[in-house]
């Protein structure tokens, strides 16, 4: 293990480590504490410049009430779910198939197709922006959730294919060979043998895509204009313009926007990390 486990060190080092650990955590989380505390405050504290002292009132619920009733926040949150969940399902479904095809069959253009998926995944969004916006206009889906979902599904398929293909490639090939010997059709092999084995990969992709799409801001501003279809990131930005110095509301809104991916992360942490490291984790 590297570095040397702390319990093999002199006792004094152990104490120093145990003191520094919480201190470093507190420093690291200062920005988070900042918004948590501010979401409790009222306008009085904000204008008085009381940012770090004890809040003079506990107004979290009144702030939440303000945010939810005086702004389209509920609508924004719902929109985010309506964009995120179908994207997640669509991209995972498509990439199970592409990943399987690229991992299991030898054909001449295999690697080229694989590299096209990878390259597309890293491209800057701006090079896609004008044609994608145009296309969405032409098929009558500009300013709709469906239009946004279609693009997200297509784009995320790149990353998901990379992940799925590597995952399926690492599965024992004997299973597939044996099934083929028994005369199982290719579709049967995919459905009955591969899909059940890819469950951990599917879980990892679901968490990752959920966070990516939930946090997307760029495409939400390019493809959506009105409140009716706007997801929470773009919504928060537009509310920021109206609130100006109402930091207590801004903080409360930010927390609302951050909660779903944070919950997802804490529940599925193992899968999340496996996904980020492209499956380079053990166990």
């Amino acid at each position: 293990m590297f570095p040397t486990p702390i319990h093999q060190r002199p006792i004094i080092n152990q104490y120093i480590y145990k003191i520094f650990l919480p201190i470093s955590l507190i420093i690291w989380l200062i920005p988070i504490f900042g918004i948590l505390m501010t979401s409790i405050r009222g306008l009085g504290d904000i204008t008085a410049g009381n940012m770090w002292g004890t809040p003079s009132e506990f107004l979290l619920f009144s702030n939440l009430h303000d945010v939810f009733t005086n702004t389209p926040m509920i609508k924004y949150t719902l929109n985010s779910f309506k964009v995120t969940i179908p994207t997640m399902l669509g991209a995972v479904a498509l990439s199970c198939m592409t990943g399987f095809a690229l991992a299991n069959y030898k054909f001449r253009t295999n690697l080229i197709i694989f590299f096209i998926f990878i390259a597309g995944n890293f491209v800057p969004f701006q090079i896609l922006m004008i044609p994608v916006r145009d296309l969405t206009f032409k098929i009558g889906l500009y300013n709709t959730i469906t239009g946004l979902v279609l693009f997200h599904v297509a784009f995320q398929t790149g990353f998901c294919t990379l992940f799925m293909r590597n995952f399926i490639k690492a599965l024992p090939q004997e299973l597939i060979e044996a099934a083929r010997m028994d005369g199982a059709s290719e579709f049967r092999i995919f459905w009955k043998i591969i899909l059940p084995l890819t469950r951990p990969a599917i879980a990892a992709l679901c968490v990752l895509i959920f966070t990516f799409i939930w946090n997307d801001y760029f495409w939400a501003t390019v493809l959506i204009q009105g409140d009716h279809a706007m997801p929470i990131t773009a919504g928060l930005k537009s509310l920021n313009g109206q609130w100006i110095t109402a930091y207590h509301l801004l903080s409360t809104g930010s927390i609302v926007a951050a909660i779903p991916p944070v919950i997802m992360f804490f529940l599925m942490q193992k899968h999340f990390i496996a996904g980020l490291t492209l499956g380079a984790t053990k166990g």
């Binding site: 988070i32 773009a234 944070v262 992360f265």
Partner: peptide, 11 residues
């Protein structure tokens, strides 16, 4: 320590 990563850049 991880979780600032999952929060939106907007936030």
């Amino acid at each position: 320590f991880f979780f600032p990563f999952v929060i939106s850049q907007v936030v």
